[in-house]
Amino acid sequence: MTVSPITDSNARTATLYRMAMPGHLCPFGLKSKSMLERKGYKVDDHLLTSRAEIDAFKAEHDVATTPQAFIGGDRVGGYTDLKAHFGYQVLGKGDTTYRPVIAIFAATALLAVAIVLNLYDGFPLLTWAKWFFAASMVVLAIQKLQDVEGFVNGFLGYDVLARRYVPYGYAYPFAELYAGVGMAALIGTGSPLVWLVAPVAIFIGSIGAFSVVKAVYVDKRELTCACVGGGSNVPLGVISLSENVIMVLMGVWMLGTWAAG
Rank of each mutant, 00 (worst) to 15 (best):
I104C: 05
V113D: 03
V113I: 03
Q143T: 14
G157H: 11
K144W: 04
L125M: 15
V116Y: 10
L156Q: 06
Q143C: 12
V138D: 03
G154C: 05
D121H: 05
L111N: 11
L117Y: 05
T108F: 01
V148Q: 08
L140Y: 03
I142C: 09
T97P: 07
L119G: 10
L140N: 10
T108D: 01
I104W: 01
M137W: 04
I104V: 15
W131A: 07
Y158M: 10
V138Q: 03
D121S: 12
T97I: 04
A134M: 05
R99T: 06
Y120P: 03
T96L: 04
P100T: 09
Y158R: 15
A109V: 05
T127A: 14
L111F: 04
L126R: 11
L110W: 00
K130E: 15
P124E: 10
G154F: 06
P124D: 07
A114N: 02
Q143V: 11
Y120E: 13
A103I: 00
T127Y: 05
P124N: 11
L156V: 12
V113N: 03
V148G: 08
L111C: 14
L140T: 15
G154P: 07
V116P: 11
N153T: 15
F155D: 13
D159A: 14
F151E: 14
V101G: 00
V101A: 07
V113H: 04
F155R: 06
F133W: 03
V160F: 08
T127M: 12
Q146I: 11
F151W: 05
F123D: 14
D159H: 06
T127K: 05
M137F: 02
L156T: 13
I142S: 09
L156F: 11
L145Q: 09
W131M: 02
L126V: 15
K130T: 09
G157P: 12
L111Q: 02
A106R: 05
F105H: 08
L110N: 07
L117I: 03
V148I: 15
I115H: 00
Q146T: 15
T97D: 04
W128R: 01
F105V: 15
D159C: 07
V148R: 06
G157M: 14
L140Q: 09
T108N: 04
A114Y: 00
G154K: 02
K144A: 10
A106N: 04
T97L: 03
L145R: 12
